[in-house]
Amino acid sequence: MKEYDDIPGTYVFDAERARQGYPLNRFCMSLMHEDNRKRFKADEAAYVGTFGLSEEQVDAVLSRSWNRMLALGGNVYFMAKLFFTDGRSVQFACAQMAGMTQDAYAQMMLSGGRSPDGNRYKREQSDG
């Protein structure tokens, strides 16, 4: 148990996740180049298959399961290359990670953001 493991809804990109996520993030990084974006869009599975991701990671990418990507070692600054390849914003992806519509998420931000109250410890949430 790491001291930050009791923070709810948060995947800390530590050395262990970075190790696990190295191929996943390397794939994401490759999407900074237009040629690679084209190759990815032409055949997503074939392109992702060249980076040595685990089956779970490939599945998370193809299904755009952002939270699973995070749990499997993805980092948001790398994943952002995939958001942009999809023509989506970071805010769009954040809303999906939070299980909200983009409108509801944007409205939450305009209203001052998600309060830390009740969001500091997992136990606050499991206790209801």
Binding site: I7, P8, G9, T10, Y11, W66, N67, L70, V76, V90, C94, A95, M97, A98, G99, Y105, M108, M109, G112, G113, R114, S115, P116, N119
Partner: peptide, 17 residues
Amino acid sequence: MSHQLQGPRAGLINSEF
């Protein structure tokens, strides 16, 4: 300043902090 760009807690802002 405060921000979180990932996970179900994305969007956290803590003005007091």
